[in-house]
Amino acid sequence: MNTAATWPDDIFRVLLDMDVKQVAYVPDAGHTRLIELCRDSNALTAVSLTTEEEGIAFLAGAWLGGQRGVLLMQSSGIGNCVNMLSLARACRFPLPILVTMRGQWGEFNPWQVPMGQISADVLGLAGVVVYPVDDTARIADTVAAAARTAFDGPGLSAVLISQRVVGAKTFGK
């Protein structure tokens, strides 16, 4: 990954602008910088999860209490969320999800491919508005658009940040 990438900083500014107070995550290498920014910030709380579906329930609770949140994960985490998305759907909780993609552009690990290849379809079937993005210059405004879809709807949205942007992991090969 390009360590000088600024798109995570751009996303972070959008989150602050949008008054996001809770950022729940299961780490992905592609989200390293954004997670660091969130953890170091006093403006919001970064909550590490054991599984991505926890985040959907967590953000529903935060919204009941009056706070906005976002969920960060890699594409394999989408599979862990499917039934819990019903909570957000049935109650129309605002749920913006920022996904760093695996199993796509130049994937090295074949175990990532099945979930990566069905991520957008699974989210679509579950009623999530999907925003794919593969241009670093457009990530921040895509996140802003997805956040508006979520908070103003209210509804469910996901930004799928292409592996082309995140960089294909190669395990040194």
């Binding site: 107070k21 809770q22 709380t45 909550v47 579906e53 926890e54 985040g55 959907i56 329930a57 967590f58 953000l59 529903a60 609770g61 935060a62 919204w63 009941l64 209490g65 009056g66 706070q67 949140g69 819990m84 909570l87």
Partner: peptide, 12 residues
């Protein structure tokens, strides 16, 4: 998900 909803609410 019940306990996690509680956590989100408790933090908010």
């Amino acid at each position: 998900g019940a306990a996690m909803i509680g956590l989100g609410l408790a933090l908010a």
